[in-house]
Each structure stands twice: as structure tokens, then as C-alpha cells.
Design a protein around this nucleic acid. Sequence first.
DNA 1: TAGACACAGATCGTATACAATCTAAAGGCA
DNA 2: TGCCTTTAGATTGTATACGATCTGTGTCTA
Lengths: 231, 231
Amino acid sequence: MKDLDLQSSTTPSADEISAQLTEAVHEHRVLPGMKVSEDEVSEIFGVGRTVVRQALQTLAHEGLLRIERNRGAFVAKPSVKDAREVFEARALLEPRTARAAAERTTETDMALLEGHIEQEHAALAAGETGRALKLSGLFHAEIARIANQATIEAFIKQLVSRSSLVIALYWQRRSAICESHAHHALLDALRRQDGDAAEDLMKGHLLDLLSQLDLRQLPDQAPSLREALKR
Amino acid sequence: MKDLDLQSSTTPSADEISAQLTEAVHEHRVLPGMKVSEDEVSEIFGVGRTVVRQALQTLAHEGLLRIERNRGAFVAKPSVKDAREVFEARALLEPRTARAAAERTTETDMALLEGHIEQEHAALAAGETGRALKLSGLFHAEIARIANQATIEAFIKQLVSRSSLVIALYWQRRSAICESHAHHALLDALRRQDGDAAEDLMKGHLLDLLSQLDLRQLPDQAPSLREALKR
DNA sequence: TAGACACAGATCGTATACAATCTAAAGGCA
DNA sequence: TGCCTTTAGATTGTATACGATCTGTGTCTA
């Protein structure tokens, strides 16, 4: 829980705190199983514990944190089952949403997505895999926004967040270059307003991501010795 | 915000409070636009405002409440767009989940669902439309549970909750007898482990529900005179 | 030395006090 | 009378104090 972003000069709100914590998780600067102490966060951001608690509750509702009574908040560690469920939910939501997006894309949207992909590529080239991962997630959420489906967008954002945790736990490193290509192909389909292609590409992309996870291992691979030997 | 369920003798937790409020919304005893004052809830349940705030935050995250800064919490009033989005999301999630459920149903599950339908029928016969509506929602969530998809189940529960609000706002009363039949047909499909039928039936059922809403009207139909004339 | 018990420190849970903000009514002015 | 300003009341936002619970350490005894 060290080295988070510097906050703005004014005292941050609960939403700003939860946003920064979310970003830290997305960038894998904060990893599954880590303890997120109320006092620590309150000291870092210079606010009372009341506000911190609000932020932590929000993150718990989104499935990023797990709050254990009288013990504190910990970054969630999705089980293998959780991991599968996340990608099954994404498989139901995202392909059809990508189709809808293709049929509604505007010039402005395209420019925005292009910017995203460019940044993602740059981050990957610079070795900032964390930042690349976060941008990759934003790309998926952005498609739901383009489809004009705020409700589904909120769900996808949650699923993307949990996917970050899943990737942190189950990613097998041997395959590296994957994202950029798939996102580029999707962008092309959107540009052509080709709904069929967009739906298929998204479906394939998600299957690809899933196939690059190693979901055979037990979920109790512990980030610390203490965690490993507990109970 | 009167006449909620009597709470248990011990002081209730935040989860219990949010559960009771949720039930009240599901049964249309608490309607969209209503104010949910912290002091009022804290007095009703005999707990401090801290706990009440936790409960209200939970409900806000689920989309049942809308918290306006320095003004308080109000039961959400989904716009026409929100209403459409809710049913589009359900259309993506539920049919495929019903298929999965059909392929996994056990004896125990069937008995549980039969009990649900029976109670729903009884409530409808007794004129307790609120209770019937709540049970109807539970039926949908139960199917996700049978499909062994906890993540999707959580999403469906949220969507069912919002559907209750949508129904309270946009339901046109002329069509009355609908639920029981569709749920019965679904139950049959599950019993036969007929995934195709279950998926189709669920899809049709959701379209049916949507078609029975009147989504032409403006969303600003006010529940109180004061609301109507404000700003 | 090993086990059990007890105690101290730290962390979280809840209530409450006080400040900030909004709402609405009362008063003044044109 | 009608409109703007002021002021009192109510409600929410935040911090903090206090109590409950858990974790880990130290001590006592067999």
C-alpha cells in the first residue's frame, strides 16, 4: 500500500479515493491479498476514516476488496471458479454490445478509441505493462459507452476490474503480444460499422484472453508466507 | 417510509436493514421518488446513523437509491432510457443462463422452484400483487443460482431490483395475468432439461414483460405535488 | 521444553458531536 | 402585491472518541 498517486491539493472525496485505488489495482501496483488498512489510507490521503470507509465499501461492492469483519479490507483473490464466471459473464455481455457499438460509432468515438490504442501500444513498448493493462480495460468499457448502454457499461467496468485481479493471479507469461492486435481488428470493424465482425471479434478476443490463463492451479497460491500457512 | 417489517429483537446489521428496504421496494410498499431519511430509518431500526448510511450506500450501489449530496437518499426513478437498458441487459444475461440452468437442474432445485411458483400463485390469488412481484423476481435470480453462476446471479438480482422500480413507474395495468404462465413453462423446460426451450422461453418472457410497459410517457411524472413543481 | 492462559497492542465497529449545506419561511423594499 | 434578501430550521457530511474484537507475545506451570 505504498507509492500511490499523489492526490490533488484539496482533500479528496470518497469517490476520488476509490478511483485511485481502483487504478492502482488495474495497474497491478496493488496485488490480490494485500491488506488495505483504514488508518494507512486515511493517512495517505489526509482524510478521516469515515471517508476511507466509504471508499472501501464502494470497492467491496465492486468485488475488488473483501472486507472481513474486525480484520479489515483485503484486495480480493478471485478463485478459479470466480475467474471462469467473470469471463462467462463477459462473453454474454460484450460481443452483443460490440455489435451495438459498431452500429452507432461516430467520428469522435473513433478518434478516442484510436488514442486509447495508441497509448496502449506506447505503454507496452515502454515496458509499462501495468499501464497497458489498465488502458486495455478502458477500451472494453469505452465500447459499452459507445453502444449507449450505461447499465451494461457499469457491469463491464466491474468485470474488467475483476479481470485485472484474475490476470494478476492466473496469467501465464509465455504469451505476451496479444492485446494490441485484437483491439486493432475491433477498431477496424467499428470503423466499417460491421456489426457481425465486431461481435465475432469480441467473442474471439475474450476466448483468447481466457485461454491465456492457467486455471488449473489451486487458488491458494499465497502472496505471502503468512497467507500460505493460515488455517 | 412507514410500516416496514418489524425487525428482529437484536439490533439489526447494515445488511439486514438494506435487505428489508430492498424487500419493501420489491413489494412496492416503497415507491420511486420517496425520500429515505437517515434519521427516520435510524429511528425505525433502532441503530445509529452510521449503520443506516452503510445500508443506504449499499442500496445506492445497486441502483435502488439515489443519494444527492446534502439532500439525502431517494428511491431511484429510472428514466425511460434506464428502463430499456435494464431489459436489454437482462436479455443478454438471462436466456443463456436459463439454458445453463436447464442442463444442471437437480431434484432439489425443482422442488424449490415449484414452491416459489406456488407461493407466487397464491399471492396473486390473494390480491397481494406486491408479494407476487417480489416472488417473481426471486424466481429469476434462482435460475442463475441453479446455473451455478454467482457473478451473473448478482447482476440479475440488481436488474430485477431495478425492474421493480421500472414496473412501478411504467406498468400498464390493462394486462394482468402473465407471470404465472411463463414461469410454469420455464419450469417445465428445466424439468425436461431442455436447454433450447429454456433459452427461448426466457427470451420470450422478457420481451413479454417489456411489451407490457408503457415507455412513451415522460419520466417526470411526479409522485408528489412538491416534486412536480420543483425547479 | 511444550502447552495453555492471560494480557497488551492494534485495528475495526458504532455512536455521537459539530460543521457545512440546503430548504423554506419571514421580512423588507420597490 | 410581487420579488428579492435574510434568517431559522432541518438534514446531511465529517471527524473523533470510545468500545469490541482480534492478533501476537510473554509468562506460568506441568
